[in-house]
């Protein structure tokens, strides 16, 4: 990931937008974050030309580690063609001139919002998460002076109080996304608002996982092959979501599905949230119950779709 020349494609800004000093600062932060898995490292986050909350943390990480030889994939909600993913991909094409791809297996760097790709990632890949609220304890304790102590002294009882309340009221833990995890048997961490379906993928993942919260100015990381455990009780173990039907387009099971409303009479279908995974399966000849409708519905390679 070396960047030999420091100019963006159009020459207006430095390569990958950020100046080299800032990139060095962020890389130092990343090293610290990797050294202490799950610990939120404060960093001098910069104002980016995108709005806070729209991925500025992930963008700063990507900008700091991307090199000319990288191939970038950007997804939002699992899909490459959602507007903000398109916008971020365009940004990096413009300021870094790197190759971009929609194919998970071809990417060396994947920036994501709210999902982990279905395909198992490899040691040669880095997954960068956009994080809106890095503090897993914020709903219970808004004060940072206090939450930093809770992390420092491993005082995590409060987190289980929340889970206890869920079970006592609803019979189960009702957190469905941004489900807190314990990393490397030490820090409790927000996995970012991915569905809890994706939580198990974080554990012992071969790829490096980096998390950037731009507005809150925090970076954290999970090194490859690190233990990641979703919080639970011994007698109420963690359960990821399950879908009773396969993807209506590619027939995939054990994947996260999006509900697509088809008309105002209650007709709907469930399709893969990971658009590349679905495309790849369909290309390989897998079909779901409504595969024939797929083309009509715009589930085709969508570059240039209005």
């Amino acid at each position: 990931m070396n960047s030999r020349a420091f100019h963006s494609v159009d020459g207006t800004y430095n390569f990958a937008y950020l100046d080299e000093q800032t990139k060095r600062m962020i890389r130092r932060t990343l090293l610290k974050a990797i050294a202490v898995p799950g610990y939120q490292v404060p960093f001098g986050g910069r104002e980016m030309p995108m709005a806070y909350g729209w991925g500025t943390g992930g963008i700063q990480i990507t900008a700091s580690i991307i090199g000319r030889d990288d191939t970038l994939k950007v997804i939002d909600q699992g899909a490459d063609d959602t507007t903000n993913a398109v916008s971020i991909r365009r940004f990096f094409r413009r300021v870094a001139g790197v190759q971009t791809t929609e194919e998970t297996s071809k990417a060396t760097l994947i920036q994501t919002r709210h999902r982990i790709p279905e395909k198992q990632l490899t040691e040669k890949q880095i997954l960068v998460y956009q994080v809106p609220q890095p503090e897993p304890l914020w709903k219970l304790e808004p004060r940072e002076v206090e939450t930093r102590k809770l992390h420092a002294y491993s005082e995590y009882g409060l987190m289980h109080v929340k889970l206890y309340e869920d079970i006592s009221r609803h019979g189960e833990i009702i957190t469905t996304y941004d489900y807190p995890v314990e990393v490397n048997a030490r820090h409790i961490m927000s996995p970012s608002p991915i569905p809890k379906f994706d939580n198990p993928k974080m554990a012992m993942m071969p790829a490096l996982q980096l998390f950037g919260a731009g507005r809150e100015k925090r970076i954290y990381a999970i090194p490859p092959y690190t233990r990641v455990r979703s919080l639970d009780f011994d007698d109420h173990p963690f359960k990821p979501q399950r879908f009773d039907k396969p993807c209506a387009l590619c027939g995939a099971e054990e994947v996260f599905l999006d509900e697509v409303i088809l008309d105002d009479k209650g007709d709907h279908m469930f399709v893969c949230s990971d658009s590349d995974h679905c495309r790849e399966r369909r290309a390989a000849g897998h079909t779901g119950s409504r595969a024939s409708d797929a083309a009509d519905m715009g589930f085709v390679p969508t570059e240039g779709l209005n």
Binding site: G53, W54, H114, P132, Y177, P195, F256, L257, E259
Partner: peptide, 16 residues
């Protein structure tokens, strides 16, 4: 920024 980010798709979380 953070208020406006609510306009971004949240359908994975909403689905959950």
């Amino acid at each position: 920024g953070f208020v406006s980010h609510l306009k971004l798709p949240h359908y994975v979380d909403f689905q959950s």
